[in-house]
Each structure stands twice: as structure tokens, then as C-alpha cells.
Amino acid sequence: MNATAEAMAIPTAVNAVPTTAAMPASIAIDCKLDKVFYGDFLAVRDSHVPIEKGKITGFIGPSGCGKSTVLRCLNRMNDLIKIFRFQGHVHFHGQDVYARNVDPVILRRYIGMVFQQPNPFTMSIFDNVAFGLRLNRFKGNLQEQVEKSLRRAALWDEVKDKLNNSGLSLSGGQQQRLCIARAIATEPSILLMDEPCSALDPVATRRIEELMIELKAKYTIALVTHNMQQAMRVADKTAFFGVDISKGGRTGYLVEMGDTQQIFENPKEDLTKKYIRGEFS
């Protein structure tokens, strides 16, 4: 392994806050959200979503069910929203992510993120991928690491002759794979993907899905998707979220979570069954 792997290795849990319950070692992130508020609005309640190491965990559910909110709690992207607050805990390999002495900036270097809209920076393809490496003062061979990341994101062959072109000159699907390359260049241990294919055509979607399956050998992936077939195709575990409108607002909550096959073939909850049959969305 090279310098990145060493530099970006999972922080040891030596001075970590001990977890209350002994979680199995296979859990990369133990996310237990009792209540998530934006201001006075209760966005998500009672959702316990353990993310298993080396697997793809899919989040499905109707619009406004808080899938993205849950995902954004994992790397503290919600901190950027001032009125956000929550009750519960998020443990990353045993460490409390929301502990007072945890710097969200450092956390986000271990938990990479790919967004719904492809969002390359207005710089060259090379600089886009090298961005995070430079940010972390990468000591190894920059060229090599960029090439490796682009290869892993299945984009190298298409861009190897035009690394100095703008990242924005690529097509939508290529841009999204560039964003994936950028996210995995620093070798984070977890990759959060927030509907990464919603802006892409079926061919590009298929490529990204293949990519996800390849990537899970090395990374733990949490995937929010609007597309149930996608969850069926790629996810190992699936969490189904519903919307509770009983108290006036629209509050998301975890209906059930389990192996993807079980969720789609033999769901425990009636609501899941209805959703999967397409009776509401």
C-alpha cells in the first residue's frame, strides 16, 4: 500500500468514546437517529441504520422521506445548515462523529460523498481528481494516484488524452464518474452516494452501477436511490423509509431494513409491500 492508504487509514479507536452497545466489527457506521430537526420541523425520527463494512447499503423510499437527510448526517454535511440539530448518535468505527472534539472537516476526508448532480470543479480533469490529494498534502506520486482513481472510476480510457481539458467539458455521465474518481482518489473508507444516477441516462446509469459493485471490494457504500430496480441490482442491504404525516408535518422514518432480497421478496411490513408493488411513491 502506498502513502495515501497510510495517511488516510481509518483513525484508530484508541481515544474513541466507547460505544454503549458492543457493535459487531463489521459495522462501519452505526447511525441511530432518534430525532432530526430543521428548526422546529421534525424531518426524521426513529431511524437506526447500521452501515455494514464492504457492502452497499441502499436507502429507498418516497420523496421527502428523509433518505438524503440521513445520508448527510453520516459525514456531517448537515452541519452546513444552521438550523439543523439532532438527537441520537452516529458512530464511525466506534467513534462518536458528533462528539464536541471531532472536526467535521477531517471526518469528511474519511467519508467521501458523491452528489445527485454531477458537480466537477471548473478546473481540468486532472486537477479535479488531484483536488482532494493536494488538499491532504499527498506525498506519493500524484500522476499515478490520479490515473489509478480514474481507472477505478472506469473513466481513464475516455479521458487519458485530454486530462488538461475542463472537467465541465465532459458529458453528464462522464462528469459523474469524474466526481466518483475525485471522491475515491483520497481513498476514503466510506462512500456516500446521494442519488448518483438521477441525472443520467440508462447507459451511464448502468456503468455507474457496475462501478459501485466493483468499488465495494474496497469501500463501504451508502446509496440513496429513487429507483427501486437500482437498489435491487446493486444493494446488499436495503433500508426502506416512509413518511409519517400523522402529526401534520412530513416526518421520515425507517420502516424496515434488511437484506435486499428479503426486503423486495418478503417484506415484513405492509407499507414496504405496498411501496414495492408500486401502490404509492
Binding site: N75, M77, L80, V105, I106, L107, R108, R109, G112, M113, F115, Q117, N119, P120, F121, T122, M123, F131, G132, L135, N136, C179, R182, A183, T186
Partner: peptide
């Protein structure tokens, strides 16, 4: 905003987001 989100998601501090992304763009 999505470009700034990307930068925050990469682990940029606020200063880095402004210096490396917002000002050059």
C-alpha cells in the same frame, strides 16, 4: 451551491472552499 457542497464534501474548511473554489470560479 453544488460546487461548494462538493468542496465541503471533500473535506475543505470554509477558508479553503472560498480560496480554492469560490474565488477562482
Amino acid at each position: 451551491q453544488k460546487m461548494k457542497d462538493a468542496a465541503y464534501g471533500m473535506g475543505c474548511t470554509r477558508t479553503q472552499v472560498i480560496w480554492k473554489i469560490v474565488l477562482p470560479t
